[in-house]
């Protein structure tokens, strides 16, 4: 058993165990923390197969942004997870059965996996010889996968529009800074001279 393999089983086991904890933990904060643990282990698995760029992205994006956001949401909303879980046992038999069936089937499927015997077939595509991960990805992003990359961009744009459309509210009582208006203010519009009579007020 090479150290490589040992490490793989270690990280994989921890990742699966943490994933189970995500759904079974009673405290939602613990759930999110286990989720972060799962991400870290997945990142470690990526490093094991030499995909260091993906590992970094996983940590930065999922741990750094997504999981933290989750944490905020969980803490702000104060959802009663215990109550939500009440029906859990009721559906367990059927749900478990379906889950087991699917699992068995997928294992059967995995059993039919054959690795092609020619070395070219298992080469990574595109060939990464002499390039770092980052360079290799960059090379195909804007060439072969240009279309998909752009499509992903449009999806993000739509996500922004959607989020704004659903949540942004023009509250009348909030003051906003309008820089254009500030800059355009001149003396005539800003200052009013009034003669004030003594003891009369304005």
């Amino acid at each position: 058993m090479t150290p490589h393999l040992l490490l793989f089983y270690l990280f994989a086991t921890v990742a699966v165990a943490a994933a189970v904890m995500v759904v079974s933990a009673r405290n939602p904060v613990h759930s999110v923390l286990f989720l972060i643990l799962t991400f870290f282990n997945a990142a470690a698995l990526f490093i094991l197969i030499g995909a260091e760029f993906l590992a970094m992205v996983l940590v930065v994006v999922y741990v750094g942004a997504v999981a933290v956001l989750f944490m905020f949401v969980v803490m702000m909303l104060n959802v009663n997870f215990v109550r939500m879980r009440q029906g859990f046992l009721q559906y367990l038999p059927v749900g478990g059965l379906i889950g087991v069936i699917l699992l068995v089937e997928l294992i059967l499927v995995a059993g039919t996996w054959v690795v092609a015997d020619t070395p070219e077939a298992i080469e990574p595509r595109p060939t990464t010889a002499g390039l770092t991960n980052t360079e290799a990805l960059g090379n195909v992003f804007y060439t072969e996968y240009f279309y998909l990359f752009q499509a992903a961009g449009v999806i993000l744009l739509v996500a922004i529009i959607g989020a704004i459309a659903l949540t942004l509210r023009d509250r009348g009582n909030i003051r906003r800074q309008d820089i254009g208006e500030q800059v355009h203010r001149d003396r005539a519009s800003a200052v009013q001279l009034r003669k004030v009579k003594s003891r009369a007020g304005i």
Binding site: I155, I161, L166
Partner: peptide
Amino acid sequence: FLALYMALELQSLPLYVLAAFNR
């Protein structure tokens, strides 16, 4: 398959928002 998935997501995301449009 990738183009399929991307397109499907681009099509679906606005639909989710539209369904909830009367927020």
